[in-house]
Design a protein around this nucleic acid. Structure first.
Length: 682
DNA sequence: GTAGGGTTAG
C-alpha cells in the first residue's frame, strides 16, 4: 500500500495527473483494488480519467472482476459511450449476457451505439440464443448504417450460425467482401451445428485456409449427424490436432454409443484436461455404463484432477442409475468437504439421486440446505415426493413454490399430477391439469396425459380414461396403453383390458408386460383357453417373462435375489428366517392371498416357487438378519410387488418394528407400523 | 481509454 499510494500530503501538492500515471501501467487485481480504495479516499475517483481507468482495469480479461467493474460504473455520474461498451462487454464475457443486453437497452436512452457496441451485444444474443433480440439489433445496425463494419458483420454471421438460422448467416456472409478465416469458421460452425454436414463439407473444401478450429468443428458436426466413421477419417487427416480435437472425437464416439473406441482414444492421449475426463464420465453415464463412470471418476481423483460441476452431475446421475445409496452418500460427503455449492444443477441431481436411491428424507434434507432454490430444485423434490407417494407434502411444496413466484415447467407438472395419481387425489389432479394449461400456458405432453389416465384408472373411471386416450392430441404410446390395461385388470374389466392390450401389442409387440397382465386377467376370470392363447402368442414371438429380482445394498455391497434363490452364502440363515417370518405372520392372522399364484403364467420353476420365496421376501429376510436395527431396510425390485407380498411386508414392518422401503418398477413403498405409504393404491 | 470467432463435457 505504501509504495503504491502516495500520502495525502503528496496528493495535495500533485494534481490527479500523478495518480493517473500510477494507474496507467498494467496492474494486478490487488493493486487495482488498492488504487480503487485510494482514489475513493482522496476523492480523485470523481475524475473521469481515474474512474474510467479503474473500470477498464477491472473489466480487463486479466483481472475480470465484474462485480467491482459494475460498482465503479455505477459511481460514475455520466459514463461515456466507451464506458458503456466496456461494461456491456464485461457482462457478456462473464456469461451474464442477459444483463449485458439490458444495459444495452439502457444505453439507448443516452447514446447512439457505435461500431464497438454492436459486436459485444450481438455476441451476447448469440450466447443466449436470443434470435429475436438479435434480429432487432440487426435492424438497428442497418438503420444506423453500421452494416458494412467488418466486426459487426462477423458478429452477425456468428449470431445466425449459433441460433440455427443458417440461411441468414449465409446471406450476411455473402455480402462481405474480404472474408477471413474467422468468418469462414463461423459459417462452417453454423452448418455443422444445424446438421447440414454435406454443406459443411462443401464450405470446408472451399475455405482458402483452415485451422485446427475448422477441422474440429467439422468433426463435431459429422459425429453429431451420426457419421462417426467419417469424423474419424477427418480426425486422422488433420494436419495438427489439439486436445479439443481429441475431446471432440471422444464425444463423437460416446454419442454414437461406441464406448470402446472412446476408451481406446482416451488411453492414447498423452495429456488430458478436465473436459477429457468429463467427456468420458458423461459418456459412460449417457450409455448407462454407470459402474465405469464411477471407476473413471475414482481414477480422475487419483490423478489429482478437481471435478467440476459437470463431473459431479454425471457422477451423481450414475449413482442414481445404480441406485446405490452408499456410493451416493460418499459422493455427497466429498461435495460437502470440498465446499461445492449446491445452488446449481448439482443440488438438483443430488435431490434426484437421494429420492431415486430410496432416501426421501436425505433428499428433503439437501433441499432444505439450498439457499437460492431454483425451479430445478423444486421440481426434483416434488417429483421425488410423488414417486414416494408423499402427495400431500409434494402439493404443499408446490403451493409454496407458487407463492414465492417460481413458475413451474412441464416436468414440475408431471410431478404434481403424478403425486395426485399415486395418492388417488383425482379431483385435485383434474384441477392441476387445467391450471397447468390455463394459468401457466403449458401444453400438456403425453406424460401429463399419462398421469391423467392413471388417475382415472385408479379411481375406476375406465370409460373416462379410455375417452381421454381417444381424445388426446397425440398418438398413445405403450405407457398409456399399459396404464389402461393395468387399470382394467385391477377392476376386472376384461372388455377394456382386451382393448388396451390389443393396442399395446400393436404399438410395442416386444413389451412383455402387456401379455402378462392380459393373461393374468383371463386367469382371474377363469378363461383358461384365452390364457393359453396369450401364452402361445408369447412363445411364438420368443418372449419370456422377466424373472422377479430384488436387490438390497448392505455395507456398500449389492445382494441380489431371484425367486427361490439358494445361491447366497447366507442361504441357511435366510431360509430359517423365512420360517420364522411364516410363523409370526400366521400368528398375526395373515392368510396368504393365493390368487396371485394363479396369475403367474410362467413355467415350472415359478409354479414351484411359493409366495414366500418371492425375491423380495428373501431380500427382507436378508435385511432382517443383517441391517442394523433402527436403519430402514431398502429393497429395489425390477417388477411390480404382488398383492400378497405387499400385505405381508406391511405386517412384517409392524411385527419386527422395522421400516422397509421397496422400490418397484414405478414407485417407492414405505412400509412402517403395518401401513404402506401408497395406501394400498399402486 | 474499447475492437471479430473460440469449437469439445454438463
Amino acid at each position: 500500500m505504501q509504495t503504491l499510494a502516495p500520502s495525502d500530503t503528496l496528493h495535495q501538492h500533485f494534481p490527479q495527473g500523478l495518480h493517473f500515471s500510477l494507474l496507467k501501467s498494467s496492474k494486478t487485481h490487488q493493486e487495482t483494488q488498492q488504487l480503487h480504495a485510494f482514489s475513493l479516499k482522496t476523492g480523485i475517483f470523481t475524475h473521469l480519467s481515474v474512474s474510467s481507468r479503474l473500470l477498464s482495469l477491472y473489466a480487463d480479461p486479466k483481472i475480470n472482476n465484474l462485480r467491482y467493474a459494475r460498482s465503479v460504473f455505477d459511481r460514475i455520474q455520466h459514463p461515456t459511450l466507451v464506458l458503456w461498451n466496456i461494461i456491456i462487454k464485461c457482462y457478456v464475457e462473464n456469461q451474464r449476457s442477459y444483463e449485458g443486453i439490458s444495459l444495452f437497452a439502457e444505453l439507448l436512452a443516452h447514446f447512439l451505439p457505435d461500431e464497438f457496441t454492436f459486436p459485444c451485444v450481438i455476441k451476447g444474443c448469440a450466447k443466449l440464443n436470443a434470435l429475436k433480440e438479435g434480429k432487432q439489433i440487426h435492424g438497428l445496425v442497418l438503420k444506423l448504417g453500421f452494416g458494412l463494419y467488418k466486426f459487426v458483420q462477423s458478429s452477425l454471421v456468428n449470431l445466425y450460425s449459433k441460433c440455427g438460422e443458417i440461411g441468414s448467416a449465409q446471406k450476411v456472409f455473402d455480402e462481405i467482401d474480404e472474408k477471413d478465416l474467422i468468418l469462414w469458421n463461423s459459417l462452417l460452425d453454423g452448418y455443422a451445428r444445424c446438421g447440414e454436414v454435406k454443406v459443411a463439407m462443401k464450405v470446408f473444401e472451399e475455405m482458402p485456409e483452415k485451422d485446427t478450429y475448422s477441422w474440429t468443428v467439422l468433426i463435431d458436426g459429422l459425429a453429431k449427424s451420426g457419421e462417426v466413421e467419417t469424423a474419424r477419417e477427418i480426425f486422422e487427416m488433420m494436419p495438427k490436432r489439439n486436445i479439443i480435437s481429441w475431446n471432440t472425437m471422444i464425444n463423437g464416439y460416446m454419442k454414437a454409443g461406441d464406448v470402446n473406441s472412446a476408451r481406446k482414444l482416451f488411453s492414447q492421449m498423452s495429456t488430458r484436461d478436465l473436459i477429457t475426463w468429463n467427456s468420458m464420465i458423461g459418456g459412460f453415464e449417457l450409455n448407462l455404463r454407470f459402474v465405469e463412470a464411477l471407476e473413471m471418476f475414482e481414477r480422475m481423483l487419483k490423478e489429482e484432477f478437481r471435478p467440476s460441476q459437470a463431473t459431479l452431475v454425471s457422477v451423481i446421475s450414475s449413482v442414481s442409475g445404480l441406485a446405490s445409496l452408499a456410493k451416493g452418500r460418499s459422493i455427497h460427503s466429498y461435495i460437502v468437504k470440498n465446499g461445492i455449492e449446491l445452488d446449481g444443477v448439482v443440488g438438483t441431481v443430488l435431490i434426484e439421486m437421494y429420492s431415486k436411491c430410496g432416501s426421501i428424507d436425505s433428499a428433503l434434507a439437501v433441499f432444505r440446505t439450498i439457499n437460492h432454490k431454483k425451479l430445478g430444485h423444486w421440481t426434483a423434490i416434488i417429483v421425488g415426493l410423488s414417486i414416494h407417494g408423499m402427495a400431500e407434502h409434494a402439493l404443499k411444496l408446490f403451493l409454496e413454490m407458487r407463492k414465492i413466484g417460481v413458475k413451474p415447467n412441464a416436468i414440475t407438472c408431471v410431478g404434481v399430477l403424478n403425486a395426485c395419481s399415486h395418492a388417488g387425489l383425482i379431483n385435485d389432479g383434474r384441477g392441476y391439469f387445467k391450471m397447468m394449461i390455463n394459468e401457466y400456458g403449458i401444453k400438456p405432453t403425453i406424460e401429463h396425459y399419462g398421469c391423467l389416465v392413471d388417475m382415472l384408472c385408479r379411481a375406476g373411471y375406465l370409460e373416462e380414461a379410455k375417452g381421454t386416450i381417444e381424445e388426446m392430441p397425440m398418438r398413445p404410446n405403450k405407457v398409456i396403453w399399459m396404464t389402461l390395461l393395468s387399470g382394467a385388470r385391477i377392476r376386472g374389466n376384461t372388455k377394456i383390458g382386451e382393448y388396451a392390450a390389443y393396442h399395446l401389442i400393436e404399438v410395442a409387440p416386444e413389451t412383455i408386460g402387456g401379455y402378462v397382465v392380459l393373461s393374468n386377467m383371463y386367469a382371474v376370470a377363469g378363461e383358461w383357453d384365452k390364457v393359453s392363447k396369450v401364452r402361445d402368442m408369447m412363445k411364438k414371438r420368443g418372449l419370456r417373462k422377466e424373472p422377479g429380482c430384488s436387490l438390497i445394498e448392505h455395507r456398500g455391497m449389492h445382494h441380489e435375489f431371484i425367486v427361490g434363490d439358494k445361491s447366497h452364502p447366507q442361504t441357511k440363515e435366510i431360509y430359517s428366517k423365512l420360517s420364522e417370518m411364516r410363523e409370526k405372520l400366521k400368528l398375526a392372522g395373515h392368510i396368504p392371498d393365493t390368487s396371485q399364484v394363479l396369475l403367474y403364467i410362467e413355467e415350472e420353476e415359478e409354479k414351484e416357487a411359493e409366495l414366500e420365496h418371492h425375491s423380495e421376501r428373501l431380500a427382507i429376510a436378508f435385511g432382517l438378519i443383517n441391517v442394523d436395527a433402527g436403519c430402514p431396510i431398502r429393497i429395489m425390485k425390477n417388477l411390480r410387488v404382488c398383492n400378497d407380498c405387499h400385505s405381508v411386508t406391511k405386517l412384517l414392518s409392524k411385527i419386527y418394528s422395522r421400516e422397509i422401503i421397496v422400490r418397484d418398477n414405478s414407485r417407492f413403498h414405505h412400509f412402517k407400523n403395518g401401513l404402506c405409504s401408497c395406501k394400498d393404491f399402486w
